[in-house]
Write a protein that binds this DNA or RNA. Sequence first.
DNA 1: ACCTGAACACCGTTCAAGT
DNA 2: ACCTGAACACCGTTCAAGT
Lengths: 163, 163
Amino acid sequence: MALSRDQVVATAVDLLRRYGLGDLTMRRLARELGVAPGALYWHVANKQELLVHVADALLSEIPPPHLGQPPAEALVGLAYAVRPGATRALRDLAGLVHDVGVPASERDEVAALVVHQILGSVAGQHNRRLAALADPDLPPPDAAAEAKAFEVGLAVILRGLVR
Amino acid sequence: MALSRDQVVATAVDLLRRYGLGDLTMRRLARELGVAPGALYWHVANKQELLVHVADALLSEIPPPHLGQPPAEALVGLAYAVRPGATRALRDLAGLVHDVGVPASERDEVAALVVHQILGSVAGQHNRRLAALADPDLPPPDAAAEAKAFEVGLAVILRGLVR
DNA sequence: ACCTGAACACCGTTCAAGT
DNA sequence: ACCTGAACACCGTTCAAGT
């Protein structure tokens, strides 16, 4: 039966989780799917687009933050969902904002801004959920900066997976 | 005359600045130096070590923070030194900590911790200057996490240079 | 001590041709 | 519509052999 893009992306996520970013290559992915490398390019324009879909898939696994949940905790949830144990840095950062004694009226905003600044441009227009965590009144980052930041932001999210 | 490691690193920095991270390959670097690719491996163990030295070179260009300079401003200096105009995200982050109304007694600590969290593991044991910006009482990140974080941290610093 | 030449085992991407 | 086979232009790294 024919391959689907969802299948390609799911296998990519699996490869990423099992062997790390260094083994997430188009050729390795094709091998894993029992298909020629060129076949992938029917379902996905290029590797960069594949990574966008991988990031999207990772984000979609995160339960939506329930009402009133502080962004700092939502961040921890996000990081934890990617891989347990890979989240020390992110948790420390969120905890830091939470614990330092920022007035309650500003704490969520600070956390949201920090999260937004670090992760906000991840996955470009696909990160609706993350965007919702951050301040909705923030001016959206311009498209060029967003594109450039994608690889970096993704790397931050996936840092625990990098071998 | 014989190549030196300093020469290799300097050319790598130049390549990085002119064409971005994507063009900083061992082969391209060798070509730029008029030398065979294998020659580089006399001066540097592998590409990862080269990147450590590149990061070190970038950090060494930054003037040491003068006494009493808030870490947030030191961060801006760091980011700006890498490349003017590539620093919006970092500057926003620093400014955020600075402006949000964190009590003066805690502001520097917050900024230092944020900086430390994001950049603190860059360049491993080479980042003495950066480490000095962060809280000296912080437990040093373990070596494995540090190694894993290097690539990511470097990418954050160099985000403006990535094509 | 320092470098070349040549190889090894990979990459991402394209594209005619097949079904 | 979907995929193969084969190619193109690259990678990082190693290592005998040269000087």
